[in-house]
Amino acid sequence: MNHLRSLPRPAACAGVTLIQALVAMAVLGILTGMALPAMQQTRDRLQADSLRMQLASALATARNTAITERRRITVCPTDDGIHCSRDWSRGWMLHRAATPSGQDPGQDPILVQLQARSRLSAHGSQHKPTLQFRPDGQLNGSNQSVIFCLDGSAQGKVVVSRQGRIRSERPRRPEAC
């Protein structure tokens, strides 16, 4: 038996028209434009969380080093890895305290961690430039916090108690910086 099939009509084989492609690209562009701010906000929040956890880890390292070496260890914010500054979001440096105040880095730093520039800022709650752990692991002075801010809103903080305990917090509701 011979079955003959008819060939499809040319109109049925046609692809997407130029107008259909342009409409699809316009819809895709609009959806991308709507999703971009939410993705950027999520990226900024994740960056703040990462920075907060890294600082908490560095502070735990400083405390453990102070106890192990039986000497004062200072942690200070730094922009360049050499000098102490005020903004914790650019990085930090651990060093053996050369002076009782701990302001002067003195010897080679134990640890330097620099961060890329971002919209994030971080500052000490009491605007103290350094945190210093004593040989017994306690904080030199009173409780201190480092607060991470983005666009005037607190993204989290690292709190160090006078006893040297370190905890990291993220606010449940938006808080002003």
Results as ranks from 00 to 15, higher is better:
58 A>I: 08
19 I>S: 09
66 A>L: 06
121 S>P: 08
74 T>P: 01
149 C>R: 12
174 P>Q: 03
144 Q>V: 05
51 L>H: 12
107 Q>D: 09
44 D>V: 13
38 A>G: 15
127 H>G: 08
106 G>L: 00
63 R>G: 02
130 T>V: 09
103 Q>I: 10
126 Q>T: 07
9 R>G: 08
55 L>I: 02
73 I>V: 03
8 P>V: 04
72 R>T: 11
17 T>Y: 04
20 Q>D: 10
21 A>Q: 12
88 W>R: 00
99 T>S: 09
56 A>W: 10
120 L>G: 09
87 D>V: 01
13 C>S: 14
137 G>V: 02
173 R>V: 13
102 G>M: 08
25 M>A: 15
17 T>V: 04
112 V>M: 05
107 Q>M: 03
101 S>E: 07
73 I>R: 02
156 G>S: 03
129 P>W: 05
158 V>I: 00
70 R>N: 12
91 G>Q: 00
42 T>Y: 08
172 R>N: 14
15 G>R: 02
141 G>C: 01
44 D>A: 15
7 L>G: 15
76 C>L: 05
106 G>I: 00
54 Q>C: 09
158 V>G: 01
20 Q>T: 08
153 S>V: 13
125 S>Y: 05
128 K>S: 10
54 Q>Y: 07
28 L>G: 12
138 Q>H: 12
49 D>P: 14
171 P>K: 10
77 P>M: 00
175 E>L: 06
60 A>E: 07
139 L>I: 02
40 Q>P: 06
163 Q>N: 03
130 T>P: 05
34 M>Y: 13
50 S>M: 15
114 L>T: 01
96 R>T: 11
84 C>V: 01
83 H>W: 02
146 V>E: 04
3 H>L: 15
152 G>D: 07
98 A>M: 03
23 V>D: 12
54 Q>A: 10
2 N>P: 09
97 A>N: 05
9 R>E: 05
3 H>Q: 13
41 Q>K: 07
69 E>C: 10
156 G>H: 01
145 S>E: 12
24 A>N: 01
116 A>D: 11
164 G>K: 02
38 A>V: 14
70 R>D: 11
124 G>K: 02
171 P>T: 09
16 V>I: 14
15 G>Y: 02
25 M>F: 12
40 Q>E: 09
74 T>G: 01
128 K>I: 09
13 C>V: 12
59 L>A: 08
35 A>F: 07
52 R>G: 11
84 C>M: 01
113 Q>R: 15
50 S>F: 13
20 Q>R: 10
148 F>Y: 08
111 L>Y: 09
54 Q>P: 10
67 I>D: 00
145 S>L: 10
111 L>R: 10
155 Q>W: 00
137 G>Y: 01
56 A>V: 10
110 I>K: 02
175 E>R: 08
117 R>V: 11
118 S>N: 07
126 Q>F: 06
17 T>N: 03
50 S>A: 15
82 I>H: 01
170 R>I: 09
103 Q>T: 13
153 S>M: 13
149 C>I: 14
21 A>L: 14
105 P>C: 04
2 N>K: 11
161 S>W: 02
170 R>N: 04
